[in-house]
Write a protein that binds this DNA or RNA. Structure first.
Lengths: 213, 213
DNA sequence: TAGATTGTTAATCGATTAACAATC
DNA sequence: TAGATTGTTAATCGATTAACAATC
């Protein structure tokens, strides 16, 4: 597995993977850089450069072998290296993530959910049990789980993060709109849905302005 | 509103905003660039540069005025300029998004949801009705809605996108793991949850390797 | 052969970081 | 004054794009 892949590169690779999954499904064996570039609306030499990092399956006139590039991306991004995680909070977003079987394809295995609502405890979602939050520390230790997906309401975010840190969690995928304060050895990945949306609408504003000219 | 804010800048601004909301809630009037930088784990001169684009409220020794910077970000990112949108698909993710009242704070107003499951039709989520998908084109025209949030299952993604395009939708916030083929005048914003997750775990792999040294 | 496509270099562009004078 | 902090420049770093020879 290569070192120091930039965030942007990793995101592009995962988007290429989406395209390749689709091509494989349609039984198309080859794909060229201009085709990928057009679908993703990026530069075609960018695609060639990225793919060259992973594979030599590119052939003049025919493009790249879908199967090869797909598995090269999977290897580079560690799809087979399964990472276990707990979901903290059991609201709609949590249920959506728990039901999303595709995660396992990408190497993310959700083992269980946690909540403090007695009505939700012992329910099962997609084969995963919802436990009371008080069971988390013990289970994390026993199952050696260091990853948590935080989906609690904003007001409970920091408090939950503190609790996760005390339970030995080292990586928090943060779906709350809060900036979490955690020790240096704990990593937070902010999902920042709003940031994506805002970029999306800023583009709109820009487009509308250029239409006006 | 400034032009051509880069994606990264917009995402940073939205993260600063999260911090500022928290500070305002705690009745703290000032904040300094090293404090923001530490919370977000970025460079402090980056923060100063970003904030200088928006405001002159920075004062030596005291930092920035929380209230001013917060409202400057809101103005720059167009929080008051409400953008109407439909949610397409009414699964758990859709419900999570529909229940997320915060969206309106950021200028995103969800007007209604659409699905093809007869059991869901006419239900209401957080005051928003779920309509049969066949009503979408008509409603989009009448309400002049050009934004859609796509949350349907993977298998229905492209088909739904085609349908949205034919209904006059110009912007699709795509939560499916599919690359959508749309005409040049339609914009797609790929949420790519998986890409974020993969970056998150690539970091882990990197960290583990450096621990091994 | 002609044409499509890769691989790769060089040029461009943009973003981040370091450093420090100015300020209060 | 000493020290914290901003504002800003210059240096560095990294990413993207353009161009085109090589290939099949």
């Amino acid at each position: 597995m290569q070192q120091n892949l930039s965030e942007k590169l990793i995101k592009r690779l995962s988007l290429y993977h989406h395209v390749l999954v689709d091509y494989e499904y349609k039984h198309i064996e080859h794909i060229s850089s201009p085709v990928i570039a057009e679908l993703l609306r990026i530069d075609d030499s960018q695609v060639r450069k990225d793919l060259k990092l992973l594979t030599d399956s590119g052939k003049c006139k025919v493009g790249y072998l879908v199967k090869d590039v797909k598995s090269a991306i999977e290897k580079t991004l560690g799809f087979k290296d399964v990472k276990d995680a707990f979901i903290v909070g059991a609201g709609n977003l949590a249920l959506a993530l728990a039901k999303y079987d595709n995660f396992l394809t990408y190497g993310l295995r959700i083992l269980a959910l946690f909540d403090n609502d007695p009505l939700k405890i012992n329910m099962t979602v997609n084969g995963k049990e919802i436990f009371h939050i008080s069971k988390l520390a013990n289970l994390a230790m026993r199952l050696k789980v260091e990853n948590a997906i935080l989906t609690v309401p904003r007001a409970a975010a920091q408090e939950s993060a503190d609790f996760l840190v005390s339970a030995g969690i080292k990586f928090i995928w943060n779906f709350t709109p809060c900036i979490l304060k955690v020790p240096a050895d704990v990593q937070v990945c902010n999902e920042n849905l709003i940031g994506n949306f805002l970029y999306f609408t800023a583009e709109q504003v820009k487009n509308k302005k250029s239409e006006d000219l």
